[in-house]
Design a protein around this nucleic acid. Structure first.
Ligand SMILES: [Zn+2]
Ligand SMILES: [Zn+2]
Ligand SMILES: [Zn+2]
Ligand SMILES: [Zn+2]
Lengths: 147, 147
DNA sequence: ATCTACATGCAACTAAGTTGCAAGCCAGAA
DNA sequence: TTCTGGCTTGCAACTTAGTTGCATGTAGAT
C-alpha cells in the first residue's frame, strides 16, 4: 500500500539498517506503489533512477522482509510479489491476482474475514498468519475482453 | 484430500482423458494423500511403482489441473503443491503451510470463512475463487522445537 | 499398408532466485 | 598514518522447478 507519510530513511534506521541509497530506493519503490510488485518491477523502478545489480536487489529485499518492513507474497505464479509490511497505517489485507495479466492488487482490509483466533488451538499447530488471495480477472482485462 | 471412494480410472474417463497407467498412477498418488504434494513427492510416489519421466509428470499434472481433477496450490515457496480438485466429496478448503519444514496440510472446510459473494461486485473485477493459506509451525515441528 | 492422433521420453532451455568470492569503503585500533 | 574487520555491492556461476522442441512408439482409422 502506498503511503506518502512514510519516511523510508527513518524506517530503515529504526530497524537497525544503514539507510544506503539503494536500500532507500528499493523500499521507496515498494512503498510508493498501490499494489505489490514483482522483483523485476522493483528492479526496473530502481534502475530508472540509479544502477542496481540483481543480487543486490534480492539481498535488500531479503533484509527488508526479515525486518518486517516488506512482506513477501506468493502470487500463485512462480514470482513473488513484494508489498509494504504491516504497520498501524497499513493493516493486513487480502490481495487479488488477475490470472490473465498477472497483476496483483491490494484489497480492502475489511474483506479479510478470517478469524485467526478461531483457527488457533485446533490441534497443536501454531498459526502465525493468514494469506488470503482472490483470483479472477482484473478490471482492465475484463474491459479488454468485452471489446 | 484422500478418498477411498474415488475410482481414478472413471474420473479420468469422465473428463475425456485416456486412463493410461501413468495418468492413473499420478492421480492416485495425489488422491491417496491427505495433504497436497509437491511435484517431486508425486514423482517419488509414482516411481516407487513404475518409471516416469519428469516432463511426462508435469504434462499429466497440467492435464489434470486443466480438467479440474487436480488443483494447483501455491505454497508460499517456489514449488507448487497438487491436491485433489473440488467435488461433492472434497469441498473447497483452506490449507496450512509449515514455514519450518514446508509441509502443507489440508484444513477443515469449515475454517474457510470467506464470503466470496460479498467480495464480488466491488469494482468490475471478476472474482473466480479464493485461496486461503494459514502459515505457522506444524505439530511435528512444534514438538521437535520444545524438545 | 499408411496415415493420423496421442502418449511418452530425452535434451536443452527458461525464469526467478541463490551462493561464492572479490572489490570498495569506512570506522576504529595501533 | 596505516592496518584491520565488518558491512555493502557487484559479477559469474549455480540451483530449482518447471517448459519447449523434437523424436519415437503405439493404436485406431482409411
Ligand atoms: Zn488483468
Ligand atoms: Zn497489499
Ligand atoms: Zn513442520
Ligand atoms: Zn487440501
Amino acid at each position: 500500500m502506498m503511503c506518502e507519510a512514510c519516511d523510508y530513511v527513518k524506517m530503515l534506521q529504526s530497524h537497525g539498517l544503514d539507510p544506503t541509497p539503494l536500500r532507500e530506493a528499493v523500499l521507496r519503490s515498494v512503498g510508493q506503489e498501490s499494489r505489490p510488485l514483482a522483483a523485476a518491477e522493483i528492479m526496473a523502478a530502481v534502475r530508472s533512477r540509479m544502477s542496481i545489480n540483481k543480487v543486490t536487489l534480492y539481498r535488500i529485499l531479503g533484509l527488508l522482509v526479515e525486518k518486517g518492513l516488506v512482506k513477501r507474497l506468493s502470487a500463485g505464479d512462480r514470482a513473488f510479489r513484494y508489498g509494504m509490511g504491516e504497520t498501524r497505517h497499513h493493516p493486513s489485507h487480502p490481495h487479488f491476482l488477475c490470472t490473465e495479466c498477472g497483476v496483483m492488487e491490494c484489497l480492502d482490509p475489511e474483506l479479510l474475514p478470517v478469524d485467526i483466533k478461531k483457527c488457533r488451538g485446533k490441534g497443536k499447530r501454531v498459526i502465525k498468519h493468514v494469506d488470503v488471495r482472490f483470483e479472477g480477472i482484473c478490471e482492465r482485462c475484463a474491459k479488454v475482453d468485452t471489446e
